[in-house]
């Protein structure tokens, strides 16, 4: 960790120019919860850290009629505690609350979580089921891509030298307009806190007045080299009423669609079983929320088991 210099840009343009000039030798840092560990264990060895924290306008959560926008420097803890998001994207809040510890969440940013591109990261699946669009600043100005296209492989994004993720825009129903959408994030871990997901599952459901599914999205973490969107869920559910049989079938298809590895957090076979178990639960809870059958603002149990009270 010797001899790393820190550059503190005061404008986005300055940051972009610096990163473009130094290429691989410079790495942006915001909360530092991944960068500092990676540096210490020698996974990366930058000459420069580019401290983005002084940049204005990259932090905060905004809503409009169609959804919400989250600045890349927004802390995970701010997402976890945001009441507006809790109604619009429960999945995102449920993902935020299980990321690291309170201390880590207070430092970590959503941009860092996305750009670190860990297959087990919490934020990507929750944003993917809300149609996330990534806004990226670079030497040639701003470009937008579907969030899924950001991820290339473990630890790798499609960002070009000099590019910085600045914002993510998502679709979500406005709670004041008789909400008919719901989302949910569940995961499997060894410990019930401070752990990386063995499997993470995010789901979102929209229903029409007859409670027929009009939109459905599903995304998984830790079961493929990149956060995995399961597109077929839309074909399988739209136009139908959600039944246990149907959600189970989606779980089965999702388990087949993923390509997990075996490691210290479980075997590939086990992870497929967990996908098959968690997908129906996440879809069901998202549907309960979309159909107003779930207490407003209440978060689901981490693994989605709705146990009876004694």
């Amino acid at each position: 960790m010797a001899n790393i210099d820190v550059f503190v840009p005061s404008t986005l343009e300055e940051a972009v120019a610096f990163l473009a000039h130094h290429g691989d030798r410079a790495i942006p840092i915001a909360g530092g919860t991944d960068v500092m560990i990676d540096t210490r264990i020698g996974r990366i060895s930058p000459e420069w850290l580019v401290d983005l924290r002084a940049l204005s306008g990259l932090s905060g959560i905004e809503y409009d009629a169609n959804g919400f926008r989250i600045g890349a420097l927004t802390r995970i803890r701010s997402i976890e505690l945001d009441q507006g998001l809790r109604q619009r994207s429960t999945a995102l809040v449920e993902a935020a609350r299980v990321l690291g510890s309170v201390q880590v969440r207070t430092m970590a940013t959503i941009g860092g979580n996305l750009c670190h591109a860990t297959p087990s990261a919490e934020m990507p699946p929750a944003l993917l089921v809300h149609h996330g669009i990534a806004e990226i600043a670079g030497p040639d100005g701003i470009r937008s891509i579907p969030l899924g296209q950001l991820f290339v492989g473990p630890g790798h994004t499609s960002l070009e030298p000099g590019e910085i993720l600045v914002r993510v825009t998502c679709k979500a129903a406005n709670p004041s307009s008789a909400s008919s959408a719901g989302s949910c994030y569940l995961r499997q871990t060894v410990r019930w806190a401070m752990d990386l997901a063995g499997v993470g599952v995010a789901a979102s459901i929209e229903v029409d007045e007859a409670k027929v599914v009009s939109g459905a999205k599903l995304a998984l973490s830790a079961v493929a080299p990149v956060p995995l969107e399961v597109d077929v869920v839309s074909d399988m559910l739209v136009g139908k009423e959600l039944t246990p049989q149907l959600t189970k079938e989606v779980g089965r298809v999702a388990a087949e669609a993923c390509s997990p590895i075996s490691d210290v957090r479980g075997t590939a076979e086990y992870r497929r079983q967990v996908v098959a178990a968690l997908v129906p639960r996440a879809l069901y809870i998202a549907w309960l929320r979309a159909t107003q059958n779930w207490p407003v603002g209440k978060l689901a149990p981490i693994n989605g088991v709705l146990s009876e009270e004694e």
């Binding site: 019930w192 806190a193 401070m194 990386l196 490691d263 210290v264």
Partner: peptide, 28 residues
């Protein structure tokens, strides 16, 4: 009982860190 283990792969400690070792948190 539930989480702690030094996992070896061919004699190598797979993950010599607190994260993977699995000491229980207050939540556990």
């Amino acid at each position: 009982a539930l989480s702690e283990e030094i996992v070896f792969v061919d004699g190598r400690v797979a993950a010599p860190n607190f994260h993977d070792y699995g000491m229980p948190t207050a939540v556990d």
